[in-house]
Each structure stands twice: as structure tokens, then as C-alpha cells.
């Protein structure tokens, strides 16, 4: 706290940032013009007598939606989905290999962990660190120069970065599982892979989905921004509107972006509650032998 306070005071007195810059007359009038003129949707600026502002606004927004709003929104959405599916698949395959509790001669039972197993988990974790250490913007920048402008550089950049994050989070989650149930599966003769399918998978899934959708939400926001590098996502159109001085359209697109994040959050909530409650209701796809045997 004190360090933060000192840092704030330093930036105040260092002369780099001057508070007065925020409050000059010129800036104030700029701000006023932005809010009342530039940012005001075009049809509302010079409304004729008796004309319905609402109808004009709806017409304006539906035109924008048809021109590029829908396209920008769906492009952003599909970039994030595809990126997260790739990242999720990588993480599902590698996180058991990065979990030190599983990478063991006799997982959850044995005491010593041999060198080959240490090397295996360390290299999977090392790979995850490498993938996520490079920011998605740098990946996108590199990939655009290799692949040219399309949605793929954005998809791959987000996939690579998030694969690293999800792989690490998955491995950590597996390591933090309560070991009793998994040890029991070992003690009845289960192999490492049987312990994964019979216990680890179902115990990790709710937490894994939580991370997946959280990162998906982040991806939506980042896919938006990656548009500024030339991919046709929301960011591209935001940048385009700004450069043409159409601040009303720019704000419209920003609002669409916020809406998309909200939607992603809703989807995430729905999927997680589905997993959490799976199997708690009594209806079942299995044929219940209790029914048939009571009949005879």
C-alpha cells in the first residue's frame, strides 16, 4: 500500500504526467463536442419536427448490422471458438502429462518419482510456459507476416497462447485433486490411463470448463483487438470507423463487442451448470434393471 502511494506521488512530481493536461478549455470543448455531436448516432443529430427518433435509430442500427455489424460479430465469435477448441484439445491431451501426481511409476501410491517421469512432466510444463510466454499479439504479428491477412493468424495466435495457459491450468488442477479416490482406483489394479478416464476426467471437468469459458471470454475480447492488425474482426471495423471519423458507428461496434462478451458469459454459465448437475436428476439413458426385475 505504502509503496503504491509512493509510486503515485512520484509519478505526480516526476513531471512526465501533468494533471492540468486533462482539464484545459480546449479539451473540455472537445469532450463536449464528442459527446453531443460525434458520438450521437447520425439520425438523432438533426431530427426533423414530428419525426420519431426511435424509428430512425432502429433503421440506422439495422443498416449498420446488415452492412458489417453482423459480419464483424460472427467473425470475432468464430475466431474465439475455433481458437479455444484448438487450445482445449491441446490442453486435454497434455495436462495429464504435465501433472506430477500422474507422471509417476505408481501414481498416488508410490513414494519415489524416477527421473524419466520428472523429465516427462517437466518438458510438457516447459512447453506450456513457452507457448504462453509469448503474447498473442506477437504470435498474431508473426503469423500475419507468414500467412498473410485472413482470420487464421488470429485463430492460431489465440490458440497457441491459450493452449499454453490451459495446459498449465489443467495440470495444476489435476495435481490439486483429492488423491483418495484416485489412489483407490490404483489399488484395485487400475492403470494410469484407467485412473484418468475413471476418475481424473470427471473430477477435473467442471473446473476445466470454468477455465475454458473464462479464457473463451478473454479470447472474444482479444479477437476484437486483433482486428486492429488487419483481421476482419470487430477491431478492424472499430479502427475503420474511427479513421473515417464516424464515432457513432465506432461506439455502436464497441457496444456489440460488449454484448458478445456478455453472451459468452451466459453460455459459460449455462454449460457449467449443465455439467454440475449432470446425473443428479433421476431420468437416465440407461435401461434400469430395477424396473425389469421388479416386474417378474
Amino acid at each position: 500500500m505504502i509503496a503504491l502511494l509512493l509510486l503515485g506521488l512520484y509519478s505526480w512530481f516526476s513531471g512526465q504526467i501533468q494533471v492540468a493536461e486533462l482539464f484545459t478549455i480546449r479539451r473540455a470543448s472537445n469532450l463536449k463536442r464528442f459527446l453531443t455531436q460525434d458520438a450521437m448516432p447520425k439520425p438523432l443529430r438533426n431530427l426533423a419536427e414530428g419525426e420519431s427518433g426511435f424509428a430512425a435509430l432502429m433503421q440506422w442500427s439495422s443498416d449498420l448490422w446488415n452492412d458489417f455489424g453482423l459480419l464483424a460479430l460472427t467473425t470475432t465469435f468464430w475466431i474465439s471458438i475455433l481458437a479455444m477448441v484448438l487450445a482445449g484439445a491441446y490442453a486435454m491431451l497434455t495436462s495429464p502429462l504435465g501433472a506430477r501426481t500422474l507422471m509417476h511409476e505408481d501414481p498416488f501410491v508410490g513414494a519415489q518419482r524416477g527421473l524419466p517421469w520428472r523429465i516427462a512432466s517437466a518438458s510438457v510444463r516447459g512447453m506450456a510456459i513457452f507457448l504462453r510466454a509469448i503474447p498473442e499479439y506477437i504470435w498474431a504479428f508473426l503469423l500475419i507476416s507468414m500467412l498473410g491477412p485472413s482470420a487464421w493468424p488470429a485463430v492460431l495466435a489465440l490458440a497457441i497462447h491459450n493452449a499454453g495457459i490451459m495446459s498449465r491450468l489443467g495440470a495444476d488442477t489435476i495435481e490439486n485433486l483429492p488423491p483418495q479416490s484416485l489412489r483407490a482406483l490404483r489399488l484395485l489394479g487400475g492403470t494410469r490411463s484407467q485412473v484418468v478416464i475413471g476418475g481424473v476426467f470427471s473430477m477435473v471437468l467442471p473446473r476445466f470448463l470454468l477455465f475454458f469459458f473464462y479464457r473463451f471470454e478473454t479470447c472474444v475480447r482479444e479477437a476484437t483487438i486483433l482486428g486492429m492488425l488487419g483481421v476482419f474482426s470487430l477491431g478492424y471495423w472499430v479502427d475503420d470507423s474511427r479513421s473515417r471519423g464516424r464515432y457513432d458507428e465506432m461506439l455502436y461496434l464497441i457496444a456489440l463487442g460488449a454484448l458478445l462478451v456478455l453472451l459468452a458469459d451466459l453460455v459459460s454459465w449455462f454449460a457449467r451448470s449443465l455439467v454440475r448437475d449432470a446425473g443428479t436428476s433421476t431420468n437416465t439413458k440407461f435401461k434400469d434393471p430395477a424396473e425389469s426385475s421388479r416386474g417378474d
Binding site: 483418495q180 479416490s181 482406483l185 475413471g198 476418475g199 470427471s202 473430477m203 467442471p206 449432470a278 446425473g279
Partner: peptide
């Protein structure tokens, strides 16, 4: 502690 997998049937 029974050591079953809690979120399976």
C-alpha cells in the same frame, strides 16, 4: 473414506 469418484454414478 470410501474413496469413490464423487461426481460419477
Amino acid at each position: 473414506d470410501h474413496a469413490l469418484v464423487p461426481n460419477l454414478r
